[in-house]
């Protein structure tokens, strides 16, 4: 399974790289979709169908909206040649990336093996969750019972996003 996930993650990285460098914005958007749908397959392989459902639906709808937006605008990306400041920025980015990668390698030695190791907190959620919440689906039990505050926060974030979009896109009020 680790091999399959590694292959899919490799494809996702290729898709993301292509999305950055594509000249045509439509192909960039569709290449960006590779990342989302690859993530869906990863979630299914890791036995998380709840996340997979949410991811596939949200990815599809964002892709539809992005395609509709791109088809309606100029599809060519504005491309400028890198100047001296661009090279400095790129060098800084590569330096920071190398430092972060070094710390990742150092810290990954102390982590437990992939797919093993249960956290202390998760263990107490799993034990007797059906009796505590009455819900057979543990994810729903955690979302609305143990972690109700988190769910309320998520819903508030959604409301705030809608408020922001409606505020920005209102033309009549501006006149």
């Amino acid at each position: 399974m680790e091999l399959a996930i590694s292959v899919i993650v490799g494809f996702m990285i290729l898709g993301a790289l292509y999305a950055i460098h594509a000249r045509d914005l439509l192909s960039a958007v569709i290449a960006g979709g590779i990342v989302g749908y690859g993530l869906v397959i990863c979630f299914l392989l890791l036995k998380a169908p709840d996340l997979a459902i949410v991811q596939i639906v949200v990815e599809t709808i964002t892709l539809i909206i992005m395609v509709a937006v791109v088809l309606d605008s100029s599809r060519e990306e504005a491309f400028t040649r890198p100047d001296r400041q661009g090279y400095v920025t790129a060098a800084t980015a590569i330096l920071i990336m190398a430092v972060l990668f070094y710390f990742l390698v150092v810290s990954s030695a102390s982590l437990e093996r992939f797919g093993e190791g249960e956290l202390r907190m998760a263990q107490s959620y799993i034990e007797g969750a059906v009796e505590k919440t009455g819900s057979v689906n543990l994810v729903t039990g955690v979302l609305f019972d143990f972690r109700g505050y988190d769910t309320l926060g998520e819903a508030t974030v959604l409301i705030t996003a809608v408020l922001g979009v409606l505020t920005i896109l209102r033309i009549k009020g501006k006149k």
């Binding site: 459902i53 057979v136 689906n137």
Partner: peptide
């Protein structure tokens, strides 16, 4: 069926919105 099978309010809500978006498009 969110408390019985995978899924729930977030996934189902986006699917509901998707059916309307399909109609509008």
């Amino acid at each position: 069926h969110g408390h019985l099978t995978p899924g729930g309010g977030f996934a189902g809500g986006v699917i509901l919105a998707g059916s309307f978006i399909l109609l509008i498009l």
